[in-house]
């Protein structure tokens, strides 16, 4: 199966290993991965800040970049949600409406793709230790992907997954919110760090690099020894 990878700008520039793990994992599961070179950012930071015109330009670039692909897979629930949002953004634009809708319909978050399209629940991964999983808001509430990460993690050999207390709470990332409203964001991320520490986990796993950079960056500053891993890296451990 041919899969076009939407790697996200955070992964491209800062969390390269997540991109590598995603490619290796998909290849391991029998997919042929391609990477449309002209992809940049999905435009979410601009869109969520109210800069819709700027976001539209980014969106058009992405629609063009992925136009000739069958499946689009991304290691981010939040960025996948933004692709879905394109259909809404261009709903009154006759030129882009259908193209946006087409992209939205073929876009999948990584774990969602593995479980729903590839119909695989055990990817044959192995990782020793105790982990907890951070449910990211956009992936759960807007994309509606709730169970896929847990299903896949439950089959990772050697991994014990502890439920994260108050998992429904946002970690306080929120894109520009984390810098624009930093005093509030701090309270939120501290609450999340406390929940993570309560589990006694060795690993904090998530499916969105934004949240992981937020919680991980705070834990690092506080000297907490929890290792932060993207779910692609966990599923690619063997």
């Amino acid at each position: 199966m041919k899969v076009a990878l939407f790697v996200t700008c955070l992964v491209d520039m800062f969390r390269t290993n997540v991109g590598k793990a995603t490619v290796e994992l998909l290849e391991h599961l029998g997919c042929e991965v391609e990477f449309p070179e002209s992809q940049v950012c999905c435009g979410q930071p601009a869109y969520n800040s109210g800069y819709v015109e700027e976001a539209k330009k980014a969106a058009k670039n992405m629609i063009r970049a992925f136009e000739k692909t069958e499946y689009v897979v991304t290691p981010s629930g939040s960025c996948a949600t933004m692709f879905l949002e394109y259909a809404h953004i261009f709903k009154d634009d006759p030129e882009w409406k259908d193209r946006a809708k087409e992209l939205a319909e073929k876009t999948y978050e990584l774990t969602q793709f593995i479980v729903e399209v590839l119909k695989i629940t055990d990817v044959g991964a192995k990782l020793e230790g105790k982990a907890t999983y951070h449910t990211s808001c956009h992936m759960k509430r807007l994309l509606g992907v709730k169970d896929a990460p847990f299903t896949l993690l439950s089959h990772v050999e050697g991994l014990q997954v502890e439920p994260l207390p108050n998992a429904q709470n946002c970690c306080g990332f929120g894109g520009t919110f984390s810098v624009k409203m930093s005093p509030i964001s701090k309270q939120m991320v501290d609450e999340k760090v406390n929940s993570v520490m309560e589990t006694g986990a060795d690993y904090l796993i998530g499916a969105d690099c934004g949240c992981l950079m937020n919680i991980g960056g705070r834990m690092e500053r506080l000297g907490k020894k929890v290792k932060v891993m993207h779910i692609a890296e966990v599923l690619n451990s063997r």
Binding site: S38, V40, A46, Y51, A58, N61
Partner: peptide, 10 residues
Amino acid sequence: KMFEMGASSA
């Protein structure tokens, strides 16, 4: 503005 330029031009 910078974002727009960067994000719309590969």
